[in-house]
Amino acid sequence: MAYDYAKYLRPGKLPHIWCAGCTYGIVLKSMIRAIDSLNYDKNDVVVTSGIGCCSRLPGYVDFNTLHTTHGRSIAFATGVKVANPKLKVIALGGDGDMTAIGGNHFIHACRRNIDITVFVFNNNIYGMTGAQYSPTTPKGAWATTAPYGMTENNFDITSLAIGAGASFVARTTAYHATHCEKMIKEALEHKGLSVVEIINACPTGFGRKNKFKTPTSMLLWMKDSAVNVEKAKNMSPEELAGKFTIGVLHKEEKPEYLETYDATVGLKK
C-alpha cells in the first residue's frame, strides 16, 4: 500500500521550493515516515531550522515549527527544550548552517548532551546563496568561491560531533531512504544529543560543476560510496579509499543536560 504523507504535510504548501532533483524531498519523506512510526502526538513535536534551502523544510510539515536565523537552529531548539522538556525537539540545518556560522552552537550542544535531535543536511555546498564552498566541501571540488578547486581541508561532521561529546552519532544518505528513516527513528529514540549526518545532493549548485551530469548520478554516487559501518570493520584502508561509512557510528549512555541541571539546582530529588 502506498504511504500517505498527507497527514503530516501542511495543506497547500506543495510543490516545495527545492530544485528538480534536489534530494531534500527524499529525506523529508524519510523523516515523516520515521516520526509516524514512533506515534508521537504532532503537537509534541517541534522542528527548528536555520537559513538555507534545507531550512525551508519546517514550512512543509504540520508540527510546531520555527524557521530561525542563519546558524541558530540549535540555539532556538535549546530554548524550546529548556522551557518545555517534554517536547520532542528536532533541530535541522545545512552543512553551512550547522558547521560554519552555527558551528559553535553545534559543538556546545554536543558537549552539553541536551536531549535534542540534530539533522545535518550535508550537500557539501551553500546551496541557497549560489554554491559557495562550505566546511564540508571536499578538497579539489569546484565552488563559486573556489574556482580553481577547494584548497582547504574539510570537516568530518560525525567525528566533530563525537569529539564534542554527542551521545548518539549516525550517518546516512538520501539514496538510502529506508536506512535514513531508520537512523532518524533511532536518533529520536535516543536520550541525549543525537546527530544524524544526512548526505544529500545539490544538483544545481554542486553537481553540475563537479562532473555529475544528472541528479540520479549523484544518488548513484551515494549508493556506490556508502559502506555499512559493520562491513567496514573488515575492510582494509585501500578498500575503503574514496568511501564513507553509514550507520550508527557512536552510541553511549551518559547524563543528559537538563536532568543534571535539575538535580544540581535541586529541582529534582
Partner: peptide, 14 residues
C-alpha cells in the same frame, strides 16, 4: 520510484 521521488509526485498501487 515512489521511495526516491523528491516531489511526492509518483505513487504506485500494488
Amino acid at each position: 520510484c515512489e521511495l526516491r521521488c523528491p516531489d511526492f509526485a509518483i505513487v504506485v498501487y500494488k
